[in-house]
């Protein structure tokens, strides 16, 4: 009995001492600034910066391998906080951005076959380049919604709907979409071209009733030289004043206006809610 107690006492003391000595002898000095930088990051571990989580990004910023505005989620506030910690000047002056969808297809876009495969836009893209007649539009399978680390995208009537209150412009959905129809735009931008179809007018219209037909009416209507039609109508967000002249003249309603995060001239319209919205996602009714 005594033997057992003694042996375990020795074992415990030995292992304890070993760990204590190891933790002192092998102590790795880490700069407290590194912790401050990591703590200044949002901590969402979304991976939008390209590093494995916020700790990886913080380490890269600390070692000077990444610019201090590497975090697209935290934006200017985070960059300023980090610049204070590291004593580096913050030279970014970017407007807060938000993800938007460059497609208003859904039921407006014709389908060429019925897709019954797995719910993944990537797989749909591989089956004859998708089920839509339009080669540039949204499949409505929600790969962006699944990819969103902030639960800001919801599929509504076959189109992704971005909740601007939750969107942090991390850009994960932009990378996830195989059709390249997600775009990060300045948050105060209200007028948007909701089409990505670069086909000629007639071809585009034959696949989708709300396609951009390159008629250039918007270009003529714009007083600020802010919209130009090349392969598709593109708004210069720096020049655009959100006057809405182009919205009124667009014959196919490819250009639409958002107000308070809602489409004004609408094909679909949903109340947005702040908070987790888990109840509305799970509610069947």
């Amino acid at each position: 009995m005594i033997e057992i107690l003694v042996i375990f006492l020795i074992l415990g003391v030995l292992l304890g001492l070993l760990l204590a000595i190891a933790s002192v002898k092998l102590h790795v000095k880490t700069d407290p600034k590194l912790f401050n930088v990591i703590n200044a990051l949002p901590g969402a571990n979304c991976g939008a910066c390209g590093y494995p989580g916020c700790a990886g990004c913080g380490r890269a910023i600390f070692e000077g391998k990444a610019p201090i505005n590497s975090c697209p989620v935290g934006g200017k506030a985070t960059a300023t906080a980090i610049s204070e910690i590291l004593g580096v000047e913050s030279d970014i002056d970017s407007l807060p951005k938000v993800a938007r969808v460059k497609c208003n297809g859904a039921a407006n876009a014709k389908a060429i076959y019925e897709y019954t495969g797995a719910k993944s836009c990537l797989l749909a893209k591989n089956s004859f380049s998708g089920m839509k007649a339009c080669d540039f539009g949204c499949f409505g399978l929600g790969t962006c919604a699944i990819s969103c680390p902030f639960d800001a995208i919801k599929m509504v009537n076959g189109l992704p709907k971005v909740n601007a209150k939750k969107c942090t412009a991390c850009g994960v959905c932009v990378k996830a979409c195989p059709q390249f129809i997600m775009e990060l735009i300045p948050q105060n931008q209200q007028v948007l071209v909701n089409c990505n179809n670069t086909d000629k007018g007639k071809n585009a219209l034959s696949t989708c009733s709300v396609a951009c037909i390159k008629c250039k009416k918007c270009e003529k209507a714009c007083n600020y030289d802010a919209i130009h039609v090349g392969k598709i109508a593109i708004i210069d967000y720096d020049k655009c004043t959100n006057c809405g002249a182009c919205v009124e003249v667009c014959p196919t309603h490819a250009i639409l206006r958002y107000e308070n995060n809602k489409f004004v001239s609408v094909v679909y319209e949903v109340e947005e809610q702040a908070g987790c919205s888990g109840c509305s996602t799970n509610c069947e009714r």
């Binding site: 057992i4 375990f8 074992l11 415990g12 292992l15 070993l18 760990l19 190891a22 933790s23 092998l26 790795v28």
Partner: peptide, 22 residues
Amino acid sequence: LRTISFVIIIASIVQLIEVITK
């Protein structure tokens, strides 16, 4: 007494490995 002694040993070893690899 091998079960309980192995528990102690494994827990300490994992700690030690963590410190050494770091």
